[in-house]
């Protein structure tokens, strides 16, 4: 599905937990997330911490969208 959006001419970032599948299937900009049932969250954290985590992940995705890539790239979490 990511590829269809890319084909339509829009840069797209794939936020997913199982990044190897995303690589196999052919997404170009990939941002790893937390876990399959809660890619952008973590129920073990407080609401505030969880929001901060989510914000950091989304910021990572926006950074990926702002980065030129020649080939597939997984944008590993900073820090």
């Amino acid at each position: 599905m990511v590829k269809e959006i890319e084909r339509a001419g829009i840069p797209v970032v794939h936020m997913c937990t199982v990044t190897p599948i995303s690589v196999t299937v052919g997404a170009n900009r990939i941002v790893p997330t937390v876990a399959i049932p809660y890619p952008l969250g973590d129920p073990s954290l407080s609401a505030e911490e969880e929001y901060t985590l989510r914000r950091r992940l989304v910021q990572n995705a926006l950074d990926a969208l702002s980065t030129e890539v020649e080939e597939q790239r997984v944008f590993e979490r900073q820090g």
Partner: peptide, 13 residues
């Protein structure tokens, strides 16, 4: 594309 969206975030579980 028609709506002039500049970038897409796709999330998967």
């Amino acid at each position: 594309k028609d709506a002039n969206v500049d970038g897409v975030i796709m999330t998967s579980t």
